[in-house]
Design a protein around this nucleic acid. Structure first.
Lengths: 235, 235
DNA sequence: CTGTACACGTGACCC
DNA sequence: TGGGTCACGTGTACA
């Protein structure tokens, strides 16, 4: 699938392919036209000519297949439309490498056993509501008041709505997870986190809407905006 | 990099390439060797022969470049060592497609904002230790005793060591996240989870080893460590 | 005029 | 023995 709908970059490199087909090399092949019947009663030259013709046709099919695959590769990787064959393949291998590393990074990110025994407990919270100008600041200060440390944060907005995915630990909980400090520091109800986030939600609802007339019906993603993981706040 | 150390599948298809180089077509090119100086004082046939030779050489370099890239693609995708060129390209485009879809799936997995306001709080715990036969059963019962519900679990083992990544909520916490039930049910210290997992760890350590000699000395990566920009410690 | 890039046909090779 | 694949040299177009 998806092989012939492309721009036919390398097939139309001059003539409409029939003219090329009866080109120079084909004529040199027809130069051997003689009258010499084979010993088996069958003329051998027409057979040889037919074999040669089918041979060249098979080769032409092979080239078409390969070039069709190259064209689909061009559609898969953006920006390679007018590239060289070799440059296209270079881009292909770089894409495969970076995609492979990114997938393995993500999937085995927290998935490889460490060499030391350890126990880690984190709180993963997500808040989804309509976007407000001061939402991020409010959220940040609320979490700060709970003495929680932000390990990871991911924010995405679509159609005026925002979703914040946060991973939290208690202060110093990362390194102290295997020690006794963790136990004394991390006495926070998940309850507390939940209630705090609900308070953020309520405060946001009591204020005027951020995007009044939102003309965005199309999808629009926004990954990790520069504002959220701001560490230092009001001292 | 990484182009000539491969098995040289298509370059060694018969002769050692020097014999091929002086093959049939090259001899037919040398047939035009005559003595006929051009009117500008310079002989034209040797020039044409040289141009033709450099042309074929350039074409040969181009083929080598493309085939080198194809060889690196063979090294990148396992199992394509003895494949056709077209089959190799087919495998390449399928790999690119699946890698692309998997990355987008992972990255946008929990990333789309929901249509209703909601707050969700989960506990994400990970336990990393040497593998034991009864470890899983112990872990399961321990979490059950805490009235926690396992939302997601990921277990990976390497070299006799095991890592369990678990995402937990209180019983019925998933649907009741936006209601008041959640608050009354989910009064569990993350502390408690941590201590319970530590007890599992201690029970595992007091029992005979599962795989005696663990030969793991290779490097192992661990992404997303608690190295995120830490919020200011003391307000 | 000099490269560079592409498609083509052809000989050799392997099932 | 054909059908399939490969590398090669060549003709041709474009910069």
């Amino acid at each position: 699938m998806g092989s012939l709908h492309f721009g036919d970059f390398q097939l139309m490199r001059g003539f409409p392919e029939e003219v090329v087909h009866g080109g120079v090399a084909a004529q040199t092949a027809l130069v051997f036209e003689r009258e010499k019947p084979g010993k088996s009663g069958l003329t051998v030259e027409p057979r040889a000519a037919m074999a040669l013709k089918s041979h060249s046709e098979a080769e032409r099919r092979r080239r078409e297949r390969i070039n069709a695959h190259l064209s689909t590769l061009r559609t898969l990787i953006p920006g390679t439309g007018k590239m060289d064959k070799a440059a296209l393949l270079t881009e292909v291998i770089s894409r495969i490498k970076e995609l492979k590393t990114s997938t393995t990074e993500i999937s085995q990110g927290v998935n490889v056993p460490a060499d030391a025994d350890e126990v880690k407990v984190e709180v993963e919270a997500s808040l989804c509501c309509a976007d407000r100008p001061e939402l991020l600041m409010d959220l940040k200060q609320t979490l700060l008041a709970l003495r929680l440390r932000t390990v990871k944060a991911e924010i995405s907005t679509v159609g005026g709505r925002v979703k914040n995915d946060i991973v939290l630990t208690c202060e110093g909980g990362g390194a102290a997870a295997a020690t006794g400090e963790y136990d004394t520091e991390c006495n926070i109800f998940t309850n507390n986190v939940h209630q705090a986030l609900k308070s953020v939600l309520e405060r946001a609802s009591s204020q005027p809407d951020f995007s009044a007339g939102s003309p965005l019906s199309g999808k629009r993603r926004r990954l990790s905006p520069p504002s959220f993981p701001a560490a230092s706040s009001s001292p």
